[in-house]
Simulated assay, not measured.
Amino acid sequence: MSIDFAVEIESLRGTLENIIAVTRPDELKARIAELSEKAAVPDLWDNPEAAQAVTSELSHTQAELGRIEKMVERIDDLETIVEMAEEDLDEKDLLLEEAEADLAGIRQALADLEIKTLLSGEYDERSAVVTIRAGAGGVDAADFAEMLLRMYLRWAERNGYPTKVMDTSYAEEAGLKSATFEVNAPYAYGTLSVEAGTHRLVRISPFDNQGRRQTSFAAVEVIPLIETTDHIEIPESELKIDVFRSSGPGGQSVNTTDSAVRMTHIPTGIVVSMQNEKSQIQNRAAALRVLQSRLLQLRHEEEQAAKKALAGDVKASWGDQMRSYVLQPYQMVKDLRTSHENGNTGAVFDGEIDDFINAGIRWRKDQAQEEN
């Protein structure tokens, strides 16, 4: 069956127009000009954190605009190839084969661009704070938590997103009890929030001398990074602050002073630990920022729960397990919400999870529409 390229190209342009209506390229250009001025200020790097935020947003915004402009060019080029095929009968088959390949690539690229239009939640455009905790499964669960940390850091690296590991709590034998890191990029929270939930690993345990199959679990929490405009005030009377010495794998001291900070919010029981900064003051500031982010997320969840209760239709959005990583007796990573799967488990653990994230974002949008 031959492809009706005229119909396909019209469909592509229609999809692109919808994306342009949401992304507003003119506003992106204005924002790029504004950020470029800020980036050119001579004393920009006197405040490294603020400079990083400016340069990161500038890079992301330029890339977003570039993707849209490139898509316009690709569709125009596809139309040109089809026109050439109609005029050059000798090369027609070869040109149409090239056009068919380009069409498939453009469809996929547009589908990826469309994902960004689905990120319209209140905090979706924020940077993200991700915490991974080992669950049931002993040393295998701790090892799994470390595998997930590497997976997400590799994913961020592949996408050019700056990350910062803020806290790591090592398990005694291997792996991690928990780890917290930031992903400092626009829409990192909206993108990664679909990764929140319980992850399950099935494999032959490398820690079992009898070579038995082991199932282990890890929990992933994703919250939006606090901003100064959020005004989450925490009275000192609601905080319990403990200081201790930072430690690395196996209890090896990495700091000879009590620079690590454990901050407990007494009313909610939320505990935040920070040890990866060089001073107690820096760790305290980082811990407070993450605590504020968690309280902001808690407030948002309470508001959403109240709205659902008023609507009389309370649904559990997440099951006990949202994704399974099976390495034995077969190899398969499968998302239990979207049914998306990938048999290349090595690639997934190396950070190739965009397809899972995109499927999760679409699933979440569908769930929201069903509830409304």
Score class of each variant (00 low, 15 high):
G248L: 02
D258L: 03
E238I: 06
G312Q: 14
A305F: 09
E233L: 08
V261K: 04
K240V: 08
S253M: 13
A285R: 11
D242E: 02
E236I: 07
I234A: 06
Q304W: 06
L327S: 14
Q321N: 12
R245T: 04
A286G: 14
V326L: 02
W318I: 13
V272Y: 00
I266M: 05
V314I: 14
Y325I: 05
I281K: 14
R245N: 05
D258V: 02
T257Q: 14
S253E: 13
S293M: 02
G248H: 01
D258H: 07
R323Y: 01
Q297K: 11
S317R: 13
L296Y: 04
V261A: 02
L295D: 02
R323F: 02
M274P: 13
S279M: 04
V290E: 02
H300D: 11
S324G: 12
Q297P: 09
A285D: 15
F244H: 08
Q282D: 11
P235H: 00
L298G: 12
I266W: 04
L295R: 03
K278Y: 11
S253Q: 15
M274I: 08
V271F: 01
I266C: 07
R284F: 09
R262L: 00
V254N: 04
P249Q: 08
T268L: 00
F244S: 11
I281N: 10
P249T: 07
V254F: 03
A285P: 10
L291K: 00
Q252K: 13
R262W: 01
Q275W: 07
S259T: 06
D258Q: 08
A316E: 13
K307L: 14
P249A: 08
D320W: 08
V271A: 00
K308S: 14
Q282R: 12
S324Q: 15
E233H: 12
A285H: 10
Q328N: 15
D320I: 05
I234C: 02
P249C: 05
V326I: 11
T256A: 07
V243G: 06
Q280W: 05
A316P: 10
A309Y: 07
H300S: 10
H300M: 08
V314N: 12
L298S: 13
T264K: 09
K308F: 11
M263A: 01
V261L: 03
G319K: 01
D320N: 13
R284A: 05
R289Y: 08
A305E: 10
K315H: 15
Q292K: 14
Y325A: 08
F244Q: 01
G251I: 12
L295V: 04
I241E: 07
E233G: 09
K308M: 11
W318D: 14
F244N: 09
H300R: 12
D258T: 05
R323A: 00
L239F: 00
N276A: 07
N283F: 06
M263K: 00
K307Q: 14
I234P: 06
G269I: 04
M322V: 13
R299M: 10
E236W: 06
A287W: 00
I266K: 07
I281M: 12
I270K: 06
R245Y: 05
S259E: 03
A285M: 09
S259V: 03
Q304I: 10
